[in-house]
């Protein structure tokens, strides 16, 4: 079968471009340690505020006996509550998040935190954030009219552990 010279060139170009893009994605997925959430745990979203773990007064940042930190958050239209949290740098963080209403997603640029927060499930993300500073938790799953305003603040505090 005869294939036109130009057509052939473009087939190669397309092939190379595809390979480069898959390569870039694979590289960043590995280099930044991005992986699908591993935790499957169900919860009743409608009565979330009546559970012990996700009761309003139990949300936020807690330091565990081993020095690691657990962050409990609720995604509710329109914010991740509590809307401002402070966590230490260079410390193992475990985010436990649940939705109070509809599907949300949390994405924190500058970190590898990115997961869906599906009603009926608890999402869990483990990470360590090396760089102190202000980070934003964005909702990245369309959740309603105020979706574009759904964000919260995370301050990563330098606790003296940052590598010099």
């Amino acid at each position: 079968m005869h294939i036109n010279r130009y057509e052939k060139t473009w087939i190669y170009v397309t092939g190379v471009l595809t390979a480069v893009m898959v390569g870039v994605l694979t590289f960043y997925a590995i280099a930044n340690n991005i992986h699908p959430p591993s935790n499957v745990e169900t919860i009743d979203s409608a009565s979330l505020h009546l559970t012990a773990e996700f009761a309003e007064e139990n949300l936020g940042v807690k330091t565990n006996a081993d020095g690691s930190v657990t962050v409990t958050l609720v995604g509710a239209r329109y914010g991740f509550y509590p809307r401002r949290i402070e966590v230490p740098a260079n410390t193992p963080l475990k985010f436990r998040m649940a939705s109070f209403d509809v599907l949300h997603g949390v994405h924190v640029p500058g970190t590898n935190v990115a997961t869906m927060v599906v009603p009926g499930y608890v999402s869990e993300v483990n990470t360590v954030i090396p760089t102190p500073g202000e980070y934003t938790l964005f909702c990245n799953e369309y959740c309603g009219l105020g979706h574009d305003q759904m964000w919260s603040r995370m301050v990563v505090v330098d606790n003296g552990s940052a590598p010099q």
Binding site: R77, Y78, G144, L145, G146, Q149
Partner: peptide, 22 residues
């Protein structure tokens, strides 16, 4: 619009575009 600097989400986001509830 609210006031992002003070973390105020607009009233409309939650209470609906013409304040009719949601």
């Amino acid at each position: 619009r609210g006031d992002p600097k003070r973390m105020i989400t607009s009233c409309n986001a939650c209470h609906g575009a013409d304040a009719k509830g949601a």
